[in-house]
Design a protein around this nucleic acid. Structure first.
Length: 503
DNA sequence: ATGTGC
């Protein structure tokens, strides 16, 4: 058997790109890493694998804990982690969702080509930067009172539709149609609402950005056509989350859960994995608050998209409808969701070759599927894939670094068996922010991107540019290659940056 | 990610 040793963790190779930490000691299930050997080399030099193994101690975790090809260490639970906990006997863990609840990406298509935009890059990037709030702290597109915040938390993009920040198709092209019905604004603290009320429609900082891109490759003509993607086309990618409101909500519930469920906490190898038992009051409250923060993040991305349409209207002197600026899809990267899955399928799918009946122990269970730095990737035919895409599979958007461009995939046939319907979410960091600032200087990075690749970057802070330099990230091509090879998310198209604004 | 720590 091929094995891989890293930091005291031994992985056994199940098959190509599938590695397993066998169940041992207090582990409730095995753990799996989906990666090529070159990606494993990058995963193995931090706490990612130790954290992944720790997550298998969580009550009710089903089949196995999963680390995606872009995985890296996070708060307790790896970024790039997927954990499915039984919704009746298991648990829900804020650290397994992440601090930035519903951090995610949306892509808007246009009928413009790269030719239409060349020569206007500077004007476009300046106007986007001037009109889309970014950076740390307050200042959003909408300033809201407490009543408005509560409506946004309860209704998500439906609120934006009522106030003319959205059209019907925007909702149809969003995961969960832009609203989690199980949200309860009353479960979100006043402090969280105060932090969110002047950040509605703002990018934030760190790896969040708005990027105008051109489509360089369409790998699958049929799916590309269903997604409305063609080579040389201009698209807009928006990457941001729930800002201070989501951060505060995560923090509030981590503290409450640590206090009220110490017994469970003491069974776990890492305090950062604090979890509320399924059915407990705090599990219900956290789920309701998390859903509210999810709605907030969707409204955030919707308002930024709306503002981007207005900027394009001014720069190109045409209406956004005339430029066919339509939402392709919006995917969440940091969420938990009650979903029904066939359990047992995953553990057995790799053993079909052994001759065992792979379906012998399967049952349907309702699970809290935690995806932290992972993307839902439902295949063709799944009832939760929007009607427009049901024949080809759910669009999956995977942003790369600002020098690398991004990918559009579609949910693959193997995702339900292998990953609870999930795939990777990005390139994944290679080094810490501190290390990045030692290695790079923001101004140099910007000059190089412009001189070598005609990519125009505008940011509030040079430090942020250094922290997000292309060299700080893994190779997004390799991450996507593994997703495609495993059949969990199939390559559809690739994009390359034109201009980028960030915090 | 984050009014860049609890």
């Amino acid at each position: 058997m091929t094995t891989y040793d890293a930091n005291g963790v031994t992985l056994e190779q199940v098959r190509e790109y599938v590695w397993e930490i066998p169940q041992d000691g207090e582990m409730r299930v095995p753990a799996r890493v989906l990666a090529s050997e070159s990606l494993l080399d990058e995963i193995s030099d931090d706490k990612t694998l130790e954290q992944l193994r720790n997550t298998t101690h969580l009550p009710g975790i089903t089949d196995y804990a999963i680390c995606m090809p872009d995985g890296h260490q996070g708060y307790g639970f790896p970024v790039g982690g997927v954990g499915a906990m039984d919704a009746e006997n298991g648990c829900i863990s804020p650290g397994a969702v992440g601090y930035d609840i519903n951090c995610g990406v949306r892509m808007m298509t246009t009928n413009l080509t790269y030719d239409d935009v060349q020569g206007h890059e500077r004007e476009l990037v300046d106007s986007l930067f001037a009109n889309v709030p970014s950076g740390l702290g307050g200042g959003g597109i909408v300033e809201a009172g407490i009543d408005t915040i509560d409506e946004i938390l309860a209704r998500g993009v439906d609120w934006a539709l009522e106030h003319d920040y959205a059209v019907e198709d925007d909702l149809r092209h969003c995961e969960d149609e832009g609203v989690r019905e199980e949200a309860d604004p009353a479960a979100v603290s006043q402090k969280a609402k105060d932090r969110g009320k002047n950040q509605i429609g703002s990018l934030g900082s760190g790896n969040h950005f708005l990027e105008v891109q051109r489509v360089t490759d369409v790998f699958d003509d049929e799916v590309g056509a269903a997604f409305g993607l063609t080579e040389d086309q201009i698209v807009v990618l928006i990457h941001c989350g729930s800002r201070g409101l989501g951060h505060q909500t995560c923090n509030d519930y981590l503290r409450k859960i640590e206090q009220h469920h110490q017994g469970l906490l003491n069974q776990l190898p890492d305090k950062e994995l604090a979890a509320a038992p399924a059915g407990s009051q705090l599990a219900e409250e956290y789920y309701a608050a998390m859903n509210a923060a999810i709605n907030f993040a969707w409204v955030n991305r919707q308002l930024i998209m709306h503002r981007s349409r207005e900027v394009f209207e001014r720069v190109f002197d045409r209406s956004w409808q005339d430029m066919e600026m339509e939402l392709l899809y919006d995917v969440a990267h940091n969420i938990a969701k009650k979903e029904t899955h066939t359990i047992g399928a995953a553990a057995h799918s790799a053993d079909v070759a052994s001759g065992a009946d792979p379906r012998a122990d399967e049952t349907e269970r309702e699970l809290y599927v935690h995806r932290k730095g992972a993307t839902r990737a439902f295949p063709a035919g799944h009832p939760e894939v929007p009607a427009a895409y049901r024949d080809v599979g759910q669009p999956v958007i995977i942003p790369g670094s600002m020098g690398a461009g991004s990918y559009v995939l579609r949910g693959g046939e193997a995702s339900m068996d292998l990953t609870f319907g999930s795939t990777a979410h990005g390139a994944g960091r290679l080094m810490s922010r501190t290390q990045a600032k030692d290695e790079y200087w923001g101004g140099d990075v910007q000059e190089e991107l412009e001189a070598d690749h005609q990519i125009y970057v505008k940011a509030q802070s040079g430090a942020t540019v250094a922290e997000e330099a292309p060299g700080v990230y893994k190779d997004v091509d390799e991450v996507v290659r593994v997703s495609d090879a495993l059949g969990i998310g199939d390559k559809v198209a690739r994009t390359f940056p034109v201009c980028n604004i960030k915090g």
